[in-house]
Design a protein around this nucleic acid. Structure first.
Length: 156
DNA sequence: GCCAACGTTGGC
DNA sequence: GCCAACGTTGGC
């Protein structure tokens, strides 16, 4: 069972948007970075746990927890000329980009785990969030998962 | 808006 | 395949 942290800009897509969608399920599409693509295609599995992180906003932090409802499959947006995520070089026979479906488990909008608190914990300084700040899909170790979960439970 | 880090592109 | 130029990311 894997654990992950996915970043999103709430102006583009937020945990609140996910909470309002049908069955609280969404397609996590539009990832256009090869390392993140490889994770989505090869490593993110059904029922894996995903911490949802809001970035590029006044108070960056974890605003929700989801699980993987459907593991990696070709991102439909790459084939859609009307989509901002359209990729003319992607072929249906050779997709370039992958997505997963997420289902929301815990909405933390009113009690997020904010970045300054995450940074206070020395055990979390090795988070992929900090080691690979450009990556929007990063793995979380089991120890990190447990600590993040405890911190989130304590504030809820 | 700034800036550091780092990914991508394209000429050679 | 190298590498300079350029683009993107994300905290502040």
């Amino acid at each position: 069972m894997g654990n992950w942290l996915f970043k999103t800009e709430p102006n583009v897509y937020s945990v609140g948007d996910l909470a309002r969608s049908t069955n609280q399920i969404c397609t996590w599409d539009g990832i256009r970075n090869y390392q993140a693509r490889n994770f989505l295609r090869d490593s993110v599995k059904h029922y894996d746990r995903v911490f949802l992180y809001h970035c590029q906003c006044p108070q960056p932090g974890i605003y929700g927890i989801a699980h993987v409802h459907r593991a990696g499959y070709p991102d439909p947006a790459q084939f859609d000329p009307a989509s901002a995520y359209f990729d003319p070089k992607a072929l249906s026979t050779a997709p370039r980009w992958y997505c997963v479906d997420l289902q929301l488990q815990h909405l933390l909008i009113s009690t997020p785990l904010l970045l300054p608190e995450i940074k206070q914990h020395s055990e979390l300084t090795q988070l992929g969030l900090f080691k690979q700040p450009r990556l929007s899909v990063v793995p979380i170790t089991e120890n990190e998962n447990e600590l993040l979960t405890t911190l989130i439970q304590n504030s809820n």
